[in-house]
C-alpha cells in the first residue's frame, strides 16, 4: 500500500513510477499466420494514478493488459512494475477480466471466491474475514455471500470479481472492459464504485475500455490507442474536477471537449494516420 494521502490526485511527475511499459510489441504466432496485435507501446503510470486505456475493438487492449499482468510473454520490449521487470504474474497485482463470468469459480460460493486468493496469500483468518466482509460490503453484495456466482445477475457477478480484486489489496489493479456487458444504469453505478474504491484504497488502476465517454469520465489520464497494429496516439490529461458525478460531470463543457478530442483521435487513426515518431 502506498503511504500517500488517500484521494490525493497524484501528479505523475511528482510521485514514483508504478508501471513502465517500454516499446512493447506482441506478435501472435499461429500456424502459417501471424498477427501483430501490438506494434510499439510506451507509457508510464505513476503510483496511485487512475489511467484509462481506450481503443477500438481489436486494438490489442486485452493483449496489452495480459502482457502487463505477466500472463503473456511479449515479443519485444519490456514491462517494469515497481522497478522490477515483469516475467510472470507479479505479487500485489489483481486483474478483473473481460470475461468475468468465466473468471469466477462456479463450484465456490461468492464468499469462497473472494477469500481464495487471500488464503493463497496466507492472510491470517481473522484478517481475511474482515477483508472479505469489507470488500463485499463495498460492492453492495454483503447479502449474497452464500450464493453461487451462477445464481447472480451479470452485474452482480462483475461486482464479485471486483470485490475479489479489492479484497486482495493490490498495488496495481488491472481492469479489462469490466462493464462492457452490463446495462447503462448498472454501468454508471459500477463506474462510481471504481472511482470511490480507488480514492479510498490509494491503489493504482489501469482501466481498459472501448467506451470513450467512460474513459473520460473515469480517468485522470486517457491513453488513446490506434487500431491494430497498435501504437499510442496520444495521452490526454483529463483536467476535470476530482469530484465526479454522473450528471454534473458529463454535462460540463470541458467533458464534451475532451470527449470530442479523443473521438477525433480515434477517427484519424482509422483513416490511417499515425503519430510522427
Amino acid at each position: 500500500m502506498t503511504t500517500a494521502p488517500i484521494g490525493a490526485a497524484a501528479r505523475p511527475e511528482s510521485s514514483t513510477t508504478m508501471l513502465d511499459v517500454r516499446n512493447l510489441k506482441k506478435v501472435y504466432e499461429g500456424r502459417g499466420r501471424s498477427v501483430e496485435a501490438v506494434r510499439d507501446l510506451t507509457f508510464t503510470i505513476a503510483s496511485g494514478e487512475l489511467v484509462c486505456i481506450v481503443g477500438p475493438s481489436g486494438a490489442g487492449k486485452t493483449t496489452l493488459l495480459r502482457c502487463v499482468a505477466g500472463l503473456l510473454d511479449s515479443t519485444a520490449g519490456e514491462v517494469v512494475l515497481e522497478g522490477e521487470r515483469v516475467t510472470g504474474p507479479p505479487p500485489g497485482m489483481a486483474v478483473v477480466f473481460q470475461e468475468y463470468g468465466r473468471s469466477l469459480f462456479p463450484w465456490m460460493t461468492v464468499r469462497q471466491n473472494v477469500e481464495l486468493p487471500l488464503k493463497e496469500k496466507k492472510v491470517p483468518k481473522a484478517e481475511r474475514q474482515r477483508l472479505v466482509r469489507e470488500a463485499l460490503e463495498a460492492v453492495g453484495l454483503a447479502d449474497a455471500q452464500g450464493a453461487h456466482p451462477w445464481q447472480l445477475s451479470g452485474g452482480m457477478q462483475q461486482r464479485v470479481a471486483i470485490a475479489r480484486a479489492v479484497a486482495y489489496e493490490p498495488h496495481l489493479l488491472l481492469m479489462d472492459e469490466p462493464f462492457a456487458a452490463v446495462d447503462a444504469q448498472t454501468r454508471a453505478d459500477l463506474e462510481d464504485l471504481v472511482r470511490s474504491l480507488w480514492k479510498r484504497l490509494g491503489v493504482t488502476v489501469l482501466f481498459v475500455t472501448h467506451d470513450i465517454d467512460e474513459s473520460v469520465y473515469l480517468g485522470q489520464r486517457v491513453i488513446v490507442l490506434s487500431d491494430s497494429p497498435t501504437v499510442v496516439l496520444e495521452e490526454v490529461t483529463i483536467d476535470l474536477p476530482d469530484e465526479r458525478d454522473q450528471l454534473v460531470t458529463r454535462s460540463l463543457p470541458r467533458f464534451a471537449e475532451l470527449r470530442a478530442h479523443v473521438y477525433e483521435l480515434i477517427q484519424q487513426a482509422k483513416g490511417g494516420h499515425r503519430p510522427a515518431s
Binding site: 495480459r66 499482468a69 505477466g70 500472463l71 510472470g88 504474474p89 505479487p91 497485482m93 489483481a94 486483474v95 477480466f97 470475461e99 468465466r102 473468471s103 469459480f105 465456490m108 481464495l116 486468493p117 493463497e120 496469500k121 486482495y168
Partner: peptide, 19 residues
C-alpha cells in the same frame, strides 16, 4: 480464463490443481 485468474493471483501449482 479460470486458469489465468488462478495464475494472476499466483496460486501454487498444487492449489491450481485443487481449486
Amino acid at each position: 480464463v479460470a486458469r489465468e485468474t488462478a495464475r494472476s493471483y499466483r496460486f501454487r501449482p498444487l492449489t491450481q490443481v485443487r481449486t
